[in-house]
């Protein structure tokens, strides 16, 4: 038996002694593939590349296709936002966060909000917590005037001189020390 197969195909030679392992393929090994037999018999091909194209697939299960279904509202709810939604004004904001006010743009300087509508005031900790620098970013307008105002505010509040640094092209002011909460409060009070 094995010798006959060996003469017919090289592929069969590999599995000649192991036909028990590949049960589905054993019937196919010696036989030549003709299209007629493909369509009638259900066969399992060992190799994807050698299996013929499937011409007509009968759908196993039937589905009912509903256009504009009432449930589409639930699908839309799950889809991601196209862009970050705009904020509608509310009476109160219990979380402590306040949106930017209109009158903020009347001041000679301005702090832009980021796209999450948060203030761009950050704390930069370096040298293993030895150096803390509060940073106000995205400043527009008269940055030097703003620097004076910030310094005044912090001096009144903490009763001592606090060092700041202005980077005009980078549009930021750095305050030496952790004053993020105080600066946030100041910015909110100005309407930024």
């Amino acid at each position: 038996m094995a010798t006959v197969w060996r003469s017919q195909s090289a592929f069969a030679r590999i599995f000649a002694g192991k036909s028990g392992l590949i049960l589905n393929n054993t019937a196919d090994l010696g036989a030549k593939l003709n299209p007629a037999s493909i369509s009638t018999l259900k066969k399992h091909y060992s190799n994807y590349a050698h299996s013929p194209f499937v011409r007509k697939i009968q759908e196993q299960y039937e589905f009912e296709i509903i256009k504009n279904p009432p449930e589409w509202e639930y699908v839309q709810r799950l889809l991601p936002f196209e862009s970050i939604p705009k904020i509608t004004p509310k009476a109160a904001y219990p979380s402590g966060w306040i949106p930017q006010k209109e009158e903020a743009s009347n001041l000679p300087y301005f702090i832009e909000r980021n796209k999450n509508q948060d203030l761009s005031i950050y704390l930069d900790i370096s040298y293993r917590g030895m150096r803390k620098i509060s940073k106000i970013k995205k400043i527009e307008g008269d940055i030097w005037l703003m620097n004076d105002d910030v310094k005044d505010f912090l001096k009144k509040r903490y009763k001592r001189y606090i060092e700041t640094r202005v980077h005009e092209l980078g549009k930021f002011i750095e305050v030496k020390g952790d004053y993020v909460n105080a600066l946030n409060e100041w910015a909110y009070s100005k309407g930024f």
């Binding site: 509903i66 256009k67 504009n68």
Partner: peptide
């Protein structure tokens, strides 16, 4: 196509 396919089977 904004449609939902529900199984009938």
């Amino acid at each position: 196509d904004q449609c939902i396919l529900k199984p009938k089977d």
